[in-house]
Lab assay of single mutants.
Amino acid sequence: GAPPLPPYSAGGREVTMKKGDILTLLNSTNKDWWKVEVNDRQGFVPAAYVKKLDSGTGKELVLALYDYQEK
C-alpha cells in the first residue's frame, strides 16, 4: 500500500494524480510535499508518492507510484 501521508505543510493547493502518471516537477525544496504540474494544473503531491525520472530533456519529471486524491 501507499506510505503514510506526511502532515500537510506545503501551503498551496494539492493536485490529484493516478498511479503511472508522468508529472513535471516544479519544486522539490519541501522534503514532504513536491510541487508538480499535471494537465496544466499546478499543485502539491506527497514526495513519497512519486519517483524522479531521468528525462534527458532538462525538464524534471516524476512518476506517480500511487493514486493521490487532493483533499
Rank of each mutant, 00 (worst) to 15 (best):
P7W: 05
R41N: 13
G43K: 02
G56P: 15
K71Q: 15
K35T: 07
A48K: 08
F44R: 02
P4F: 06
D54K: 07
L63F: 07
T57N: 14
P3V: 07
G12T: 07
R41M: 14
L23M: 15
N30P: 04
N39P: 06
K18I: 09
E14C: 08
G11I: 12
Y66M: 05
G20E: 02
D32N: 09
A2H: 12
K35W: 15
G12W: 09
T57D: 14
A47Y: 02
Y66Q: 05
W33D: 00
A2P: 11
I22G: 00
T57H: 11
T57C: 06
Y68F: 15
A10T: 12
K59A: 13
D67G: 04
D67E: 05
E60T: 15
Q69S: 14
Y68E: 00
P4V: 10
T57Q: 14
Y8H: 15
Y68N: 01
P7A: 12
V15E: 03
L63E: 13
G1E: 15
S55R: 09
A48V: 10
K31I: 10
D21T: 07
L61Y: 14
K59D: 11
S55M: 15
P4M: 11
D54V: 15
N30I: 04
P3K: 03
S9L: 11
L23P: 01
Y8D: 09
G56Y: 14
W34S: 01
D67A: 04
K35Y: 15
V62T: 02
P3F: 06
A64T: 04
K59S: 14
K18F: 10
D54T: 10
G43E: 03
W34Q: 01
V45M: 00
R13Q: 15
D21M: 15
M17F: 09
G1V: 08
S28A: 13
L53Q: 06
D40H: 11
K19R: 12
V38A: 14
V62P: 00
G11Q: 10
D21I: 03
T29R: 08
K59R: 14
A10P: 14
L53F: 11
P46D: 01
T16G: 15
K52P: 12
V15N: 04
W34D: 00
N30S: 11
N39T: 10
V36Q: 00
T57Y: 12
K51L: 15
G1N: 14
K18T: 08
A2S: 12
F44K: 02
V38G: 08
Y49A: 05
F44L: 06
G12E: 05
K18D: 03
N30H: 06
R13P: 13
T29F: 09
A64V: 09
E70K: 09
A10H: 15
D21L: 04
Y68W: 08
S55E: 11
S9G: 15
K51V: 13
L25V: 07
L26C: 05
D54H: 13
M17S: 00
S55G: 13
E37L: 09
L26P: 00
Q69N: 14
N39Y: 13
G1L: 10
V62N: 01
E60Y: 09
M17R: 00
P46A: 02
E37H: 05
V50E: 00
P6D: 05
G12C: 07
E37M: 10
G43D: 02
K51S: 11
K71L: 11
L25I: 05
L23D: 00
E14D: 13
N27C: 07
G11S: 12
G56F: 09
K18A: 08
L23Y: 10
V50L: 09
K71D: 14
K19F: 05
G11C: 10
V45C: 04
R13G: 15
K52A: 08
G20I: 00
W34Y: 07
L25G: 00
P3A: 06
K59P: 15
L5N: 06
